[in-house]
C-alpha cells in the first residue's frame, strides 16, 4: 500500500488541478486574513484589547471583512478540493488500462482503495496545516497578535474537523470514480452534488422554513414564527455536511459562539433579552466549545466513514471482468 500512497501523493502534488484549487483557496484566505488583520490592528489601537482577549488571533480565521474568512472559504471550496482529488481515482486507472496491471501484482484489492483514500487525506492534511501555519504567521507579523495556547488548541481541532469534512467529499468522489466509468460523468456528478449541498440546501432550508411557518404579517414577524423558521433551518443544516461543518467550525473558532442552540435562543428571545444576553455573556472555554460542537462533528465523522465504506465495498465487490 505504501507504493500506491507514494505514487498518489506525487501525482496529487504535481497535478495542475491541485495547484489551481490550492491557489484559489490560499488567495481567498489570505485576502480575507489581510482584511481581518487590519481590522484587528485598528480594534486593538482603539482600545478593544479587553474585548478581544483570548480570541484576537482566532479572528484572523473567522472575521468577515469584504471577503470570505477562512472558515467560509473552506466550507465552500473545501468540498471542491476533496472532489478534485478523488473524482477520477479509479476510472482514470481503468480507462488507462493500469488498473488490471495494478491488481495483478501481489497486493489485495483493498490496498488500492485504501492507498488512494489515504494519499488524498494526507494531501488534504498537509495542505490545511500549511494554510493554517501560513495564515497564523501572517497574523503574527501583520497584526502583531500572539496566539494563546487555547487558541492554538482550537486551531488544531479545527484542522482535524476540516480534514474530516473534506475527507467526506473525498470519499464521495472516490465512490463516483468507481460507479461511473467515464471520468467526465464522475466529475459532473460530483460538481452537481457540491452545488446542491453547498448552495441550494441553505436556500431550501429558508424556503422550507417560510413554507412550514409562514409569517402572518411579513413586515412584523412574531418571535414564535421566527423561532419555527429557524428550527426548520437548523434541521436542514443538520443533513448538510456544509451546514454541520459551519456550525462546528463557528463554535470552535469563536468562543462567544454557542452554536445552533444560541441561534434558536436568539430567535425566540425578545430584542431586550438579546441585548442583555450579548452584554453579559462571557466566552466559552475550549472544552465547552468542543463539547458543544461534538454532535455536529460526530455526524460529520459518521458521514465521512460512510462514504469511505461505500467506496471500499463497491470497489471490493466489483467483478474484475468489468475492471
Amino acid at each position: 500500500m505504501r507504493a500506491i500512497i507514494r505514487k498518489e501523493l506525487a501525482d496529487h502534488f504535481s497535478s495542475t488541478r491541485f495547484i489551481i484549487i490550492m491557489a484559489l483557496i490560499f488567495m481567498m484566505s489570505f485576502l480575507g486574513a489581510n482584511l481581518a488583520s487590519q481590522g484587528i490592528k485598528e480594534a486593538l489601537a482603539a482600545g478593544g484589547r479587553e474585548y478581544m482577549e483570548g480570541r484576537a488571533f482566532l479572528l484572523l480565521f473567522t472575521a468577515s471583512g469584504a471577503l470570505f474568512p477562512l472558515t467560509v472559504c473552506l466550507a465552500l471550496f473545501g468540498p471542491l478540493f476533496g472532489l478534485v482529488l478523488g473524482f477520477d481515482a479509479i476510472n482514470r486507472e481503468r480507462s488507462n488500462g493500469t488498473l488490471s496491471k495494478i491488481l495483478s501484482q501481489p497486493i489485495y484489492r483493498d490496498e488500492v482503495i485504501l492507498g488512494k483514500y489515504f494519499a488524498g487525506l494526507i494531501t488534504v492534511a498537509l495542505t490545511l496545516a500549511a494554510l493554517l501555519i501560513l495564515l497564523g504567521s501572517f497574523g503574527l507579523i501583520g497584526a502583531g497578535v500572539v496566539p494563546t495556547p487555547e487558541e492554538l488548541a482550537r486551531l488544531l481541532v479545527f484542522w482535524f474537523v476540516s480534514l474530516v469534512y473534506i475527507g467526506f467529499w473525498l470519499g464521495l468522489a472516490i465512490v463516483f470514480s468507481i460507479v461511473f466509468r467515464s471520468v467526465a460523468t464522475s466529475a459532473l456528478a460530483a460538481a452537481a452534488l457540491w452545488i446542491l449541498i453547498a448552495f441550494f440546501l441553505p436556500v431550501l432550508g429558508q424556503a422550507l422554513g417560510r413554507a412550514i411557518a409562514p409569517t402572518a404579517d411579513p413586515q412584523r414577524p412574531t418571535y414564535e414564527e421566527l423561532a419555527q423558521q429557524e428550527l426548520v433551518n437548523q434541521v436542514v443544516a443538520k443533513i448538510s455536511p456544509t451546514g454541520l461543518y459551519n456550525q462546528a467550525a463557528g463554535v470552535l473558532l469563536d468562543p462567544t459562539n454557542r452554536g445552533s442552540s444560541e441561534a434558536f435562543q436568539v430567535a425566540v428571545s425578545s430584542r431586550v433579552n438579546r441585548i442583555l444576553l450579548n452584554h453579559f455573556r462571557g466566552g466559552l472555554s475550549f472544552s465547552q466549545s468542543v463539547a458543544l460542537m461534538a454532535p455536529e462533528f460526530l455526524i460529520l465523522v459518521g458521514a465521512a466513514l460512510a462514504t469511505f465504506i461505500l467506496a471500499y465495498l463497491t470497489f471490493s465487490r466489483q467483478e474484475v471482468r468489468s475492471i
Partner: peptide
C-alpha cells in the same frame, strides 16, 4: 491469491502505462 500473483506475471490485453 498473493502467493500466485507474486510468482505469476500477467500481461493484460491493452495494458496501460503512466
Amino acid at each position: 491469491p498473493l502467493a500466485v500473483k507474486s510468482k505469476v506475471g500477467y500481461l493484460p490485453e491493452n495494458t496501460g502505462f503512466y
